[in-house]
């Protein structure tokens, strides 16, 4: 198992390097000139400009700049200095990353804790009024953008009813609206996914076998169907991590939460490339780690995958070729 985690961590490295390269390349297309921004004035001499350009390292060819940036990141975790504040990006990120990850994780957990049981309930009660209600509600919820929900929530709960605070992040009450708004869409899609996966599993032969053994329906569902039904749901949950994190970054800005979202937005307005890259990198790391966790959970649920870790084989390949060869 440890070897598996180690290998997965190794695979993450090229992915993250790729992320860095893409983002760095993109940042070079960004309009506006960081040198002029940095000089802070339109009245500058060519010498001043050249000096500043040199100081920022922008006079070197792209590959060299990319290389030295990557080197800095890999060896010293150095994401460069913010053009706007002259402070190391790592520093400003460090202050804000906790808040964002906290919100992201809370939203994910809320979606999972509510979404999966509701989906199961809905599947077990297929074609009843509760099922219709849940499916209809989840279709509607899946269509509501989080940032709009956030604004409506402020309108209703802060402005009209005045029961929840609209900005900041100082008490537990402050968490309610951002977390709920960021998780709703994922919650809805988890409900739908769990339901359909469960219905699919219930049709399988081994469920018929279980029923023919004479067990109660609840045991059939929880002992035999649930684990199988969760396998595709976990995959979906993994794919949704990025969506939740991205969504919650935008929602942060609405609630004036001092997370990475507001940092990112102000960086975009000021063409502050190092910060943009830093935020994107940190988010990608988070997404990768979440996917790793998903893979581990996956292997706990599916013995077929687990046994392949033990024997050190990766999944897929062998079976396919054998099938090709056989029959």
């Amino acid at each position: 198992m440890l070897r598996f985690i180690g290998r997965r961590l190794l695979v993450m490295i090229p992915v993250l390097l790729g992320v860095l390269i893409i983002v760095y390349a993109l940042s070079c297309f960004m309009p506006g000139d960081p040198v002029i921004n940095k000089l802070g004035t339109q009245n500058y001499t060519q010498e001043q400009y050249d000096a500043m350009e040199h100081q920022l390292g922008l006079d070197q060819p792209f590959v060299v700049r990319l290389g030295s940036y990557l080197w800095g990141v890999v060896t010293r975790l150095d994401l460069g200095e913010s053009y706007a504040t002259n402070r190391p990006v790592t520093e400003s990120l460090a202050q804000r990353v906790g808040v964002s990850i906290q919100l992201g994780l809370m939203s994910l957990c809320l979606a999972g804790i509510l979404g999966i049981p509701i989906g199961i309930f809905s599947a077990v009660r297929q074609n009843t009024i509760p099922d219709y209600t849940i499916t209809t509600l989840s279709i509607i919820l899946a269509s509501l953008p989080g940032f709009w929900l956030a604004m409506e929530a402020i309108l209703i709960f802060s402005a009209k009813l005045q029961i929840l605070p609209a900005s900041g992040l100082t008490s537990w009450k402050h968490y309610i609206m951002p977390v709920v708004c960021a998780s709703m869409m994922t919650l809805a899609s988890l409900v739908r996914m769990t339901r359909s996966s469960m219905l699919e599993v219930i049709r399988q032969d081994y469920i018929r076998t279980a029923r023919s053994k004479g067990m109660k329906e609840t045991r059939v569902i929880f002992k035999h169907a649930l684990k199988n039904a969760l396998i595709p749901v976990i995959t979906v949950l993994g794919n949704q991590v990025g969506m939740v994190v991205g969504g919650s970054i935008i929602i942060e800005t609405i609630f004036n939460i001092p997370g990475m979202g507001s940092l990112m937005l102000s960086a975009i307005n000021q063409r502050d490339y190092p910060v943009i890259m830093g935020v994107t990198l940190v988010t990608s790391v988070f997404v990768c780690i979440c996917n790793l966790v998903v893979d581990i959970v996956y292997s706990l649920v599916d013995p077929q995958i687990r046994s392949q870790f033990v024997s050190g084989k990766k999944r897929g390949g062998k079976e396919k070729t054998e099938k090709e060869a056989a029959a």
């Binding site: 032969d205 076998t209 029923r211 035999h224 199988n228």
Partner: peptide, 22 residues
Amino acid sequence: RAMRGDEISMIFQDPMTALNPV
């Protein structure tokens, strides 16, 4: 339920899918 599996039991056609994989 008391009867199924105890007094009557069933063997299904496809052994590949008749057993719970997990």
